[in-house]
Computed example of a mutant assay.
Amino acid sequence: MRIVTGDDIRSVCSWPFAVEALRAGHLMPPADLRDSLVENAGRKMLVRTAWIPGLASGVKAVTIYPDNPSAEPARPSVQGQVLLFDEARGDVVAVLEGVDLTAWKTAGDSALGSSCLSRLDVRTMLMVGAGSMARPLIDAHRTVRPTLDRVLVWNRSQGRAEDLVQSLADDGISAEVVSDLDAAVARADLICSATMSTEPLIRGAALKPGTHVDLVGAYTPSMREADDAVLTRGRLFVDSFATTVGHIGEVMIPMASGVITKADIQGDLHDLVQARAGRGATDEITIFKNGGGAHLDVMIAHAVYLALEGR
């Protein structure tokens, strides 16, 4: 059994590596998935399992402590590990650092969705939220859409937005802090949202034709980042039916009120990667709900393990 640290993961991972690992994984049969979520005083423990026939199986166990980044000393809001099992033999072949793997998996998931759905000529990206996932998401999106040459950043706390913009500027990326979210939405060709919001932030009325909307943050039944108009104006896709429908407020709440039905979801990543679904006209608004899932962790973990083993 191999112990895989964050440094090990970074030694072999890049955004093209992560996106291609996920793309290849979605050419495999769909995973069998099971999740368990326990909550206590605003903190959460999430255990996700996945079995991908012919590839691997795995378990991801993490805690989610939203106040950790503001603690002294600061700690990651998400902490945990991933167990990777050999699919044929059933033994544990690797234990991987979960925080680092989560960043590669989450941002790679959104980037893969964008590579299938966003226009090829997108120029301006709006990042809603300036937490720990914001920079990985920006970098991943810019990898699959190198035409992106300007980043707008909106965050409830302006200080964190300024820090993110400075880090982007230090790397030669044109970026600015914005305070008027509706106005920024109207400017953006690609919008990525990664917040802890339980109330919609992105208003569909402000979207311009052709925009791609990547919704990352909502991961519980009570959480939402986009209002009903976003979902009715655009064509909705998900990374996985199994991890979004019946599990995440972004989809559950508008379904419960009759705004959308399951039939309004145009496809998942298997459909997108295998070209059974995708963007139609250039002026369409496309929406991708990143729901995550242990199958994505398994895909990245398996690729990392093989790369470290020299296979």
Rank of each mutant, 00 (worst) to 15 (best):
V4D: 12
I9E: 11
S14F: 14
A21P: 11
R23E: 12
H26F: 13
A31Y: 03
D32M: 14
L33T: 08
R34F: 09
N40A: 15
G42Y: 06
M45C: 10
V47D: 06
I52R: 10
P53Q: 14
G54D: 06
Y65M: 05
D67N: 08
N68D: 04
S70W: 03
R75I: 02
P76D: 06
V78H: 15
L83E: 02
D86S: 09
D86C: 12
R89S: 14
D91H: 15
V99Y: 14
D100E: 15
A103I: 02
K105P: 07
T106F: 09
A107W: 02
D109M: 12
S118D: 12
S118F: 04
L120W: 11
D121H: 11
D121R: 05
L126M: 00
M127Q: 14
A130Y: 03
P136N: 07
L137N: 15
I138D: 09
D139V: 05
D139E: 15
H141L: 15
R142T: 01
V144C: 10
V144H: 04
R145F: 08
P146R: 08
T147W: 05
L148Y: 03
L148F: 09
D149M: 03
R150S: 06
L152M: 12
W154C: 06
R156W: 07
G159E: 14
R160W: 04
V165R: 02
A169E: 07
A169L: 09
E176W: 01
V178C: 03
V178F: 02
V178Y: 02
D182L: 00
A186W: 03
D189W: 01
I191T: 02
S193I: 05
S197D: 06
L201D: 05
I202K: 02
R203E: 05
R203H: 13
A206I: 00
L207H: 06
G210Y: 01
G210A: 03
T211C: 15
D214Y: 04
V216E: 03
V216L: 08
G217R: 05
A218W: 01
P221A: 12
R224K: 05
G234L: 07
L236I: 10
L236N: 10
V238I: 13
T243P: 00
T243M: 14
V245A: 13
V245R: 14
E250Y: 01
I253W: 07
A256L: 11
V259R: 07
V259N: 12
I260V: 11
I260H: 12
I260R: 02
A263C: 00
I265L: 15
D268C: 00
L269K: 06
D271S: 07
D271L: 01
G280S: 13
T282C: 14
D283Y: 05
D283T: 09
E284I: 04
I285Q: 07
I287M: 11
F288D: 04
K289D: 05
G292I: 05
G293R: 12
L296E: 13
L296M: 12
V298E: 10
H302I: 00
V304T: 04
Y305I: 03
